[in-house]
Amino acid sequence: MDWSKIKTIFILTFLILDVYLLFQFMKIRDANKYEIITEASIEEKLEADEIRYKELPKVPIEDQYLSAKPKLFTKEDTAKLKGQTTLLKEPSLTLHVDLVKPIPINTKFEASELTPFIRDNVLYGDQYQFWKKDDKKNSIIYFQHYENMTLYENLSGMITFHIDDKNQIVSYEQTYLEDIEKITDKEEILKPLKALETLHQKGVLKPKSKITKVELGYSSLIQLAASQALAPTWRFVVDDNESLFVNALEGQIIQFNSDGELDVE
């Protein structure tokens, strides 16, 4: 047996293997480089899916969690209401009110129609903002706000006006959150474009959508009978119809169920 030849064959074999492995390594490295270089930006991805949006708002880069307590209404509260009758089992978290004189509204309702009544006749009326008119339920919804930021879909801070078959407001229910306080230090919030990216990656934001409104508010993170924790939340209105919500501190998508409670993704 010629050991010299065998030795040479082994050396050549290992050299060939080393060259092959080096070639594969360079190929993978170059591929990874290419992927990094060619990774599309979120703007490009949205454009590719024909998702349109106006200039995104410039907002404070920091916000914080809040706490709040549902108010218990008493007869002392109802005594302040003029031209209205109430049924109150004292104390109660919900105020049920009937109007002595119904308020006629236009078929094409504008929020400004109710502004004077809410301001002058509803408890804490200046702390609520119009949300929507629900034609299926013949109701008009207002949600409470804090520092001009809406408390989204919060059943403990809302007014529901009821409309009769003559297109008149005849009654309403009211809940109210009090003792709203900041409970954490300020933290950096997600930029609206990053929140949009989350919605897009999860498939919640559909191709050819148009973002018609973007705003920052609060959603209820924890709801207990005696208190709530509220988180800064991005709201994106799609095609003037659907609202999508993203926790502005933690980045989860928020979905509200029919009871106003939230699910996160």
Rank of each mutant, 00 (worst) to 15 (best):
E197Q: 08
T175Q: 01
T107I: 12
E153I: 04
K132A: 08
M158I: 02
K166G: 03
T115R: 15
D120A: 15
A40M: 15
D134Y: 02
F245Y: 12
Y172H: 04
H145E: 15
L15V: 14
N167W: 08
N241W: 03
L221E: 12
L56S: 03
E250D: 15
N154W: 01
K7F: 07
F256S: 02
R29M: 13
D135G: 06
D239N: 13
K108P: 04
I105Q: 08
T198Y: 10
Y172W: 01
E110F: 11
E250N: 14
D2E: 11
E188N: 11
I105P: 03
I183H: 05
W3S: 08
H200D: 03
I183G: 12
E39I: 12
K27T: 15
I141T: 05
D30W: 10
V246G: 05
E250W: 08
L81V: 02
F109E: 10
E147V: 13
Q201M: 14
L205F: 02
P60V: 11
S112C: 04
F117Q: 12
L221R: 05
T115Q: 15
T233I: 07
V59Y: 10
F236C: 02
L262R: 06
E43L: 14
L177M: 13
S156P: 00
I118L: 08
E90N: 02
D164Y: 06
Y34L: 15
Y176R: 04
G260N: 09
T85F: 04
R119A: 13
Q129C: 11
E265S: 15
K206C: 05
A31I: 11
T107G: 10
I37C: 07
A31N: 10
E242T: 07
E215Q: 09
L93M: 02
Y218S: 08
N247A: 06
L93Q: 05
V214H: 00
D77E: 04
H162S: 14
N154P: 00
E44S: 13
V238H: 03
Y53F: 05
I51Y: 02
T8F: 04
A111D: 15
K5Q: 14
K132N: 11
V170A: 05
E44G: 08
I254M: 03
S258Y: 01
G83S: 07
L72T: 00
E35L: 15
Y128A: 05
N148G: 11
V238S: 01
A231Y: 04
Y20V: 09
Y53Q: 02
N167P: 09
W234M: 05
H200G: 02
E44K: 12
T212H: 00
A195G: 03
S227E: 10
D259H: 09
K208N: 09
W131M: 06
E39A: 14
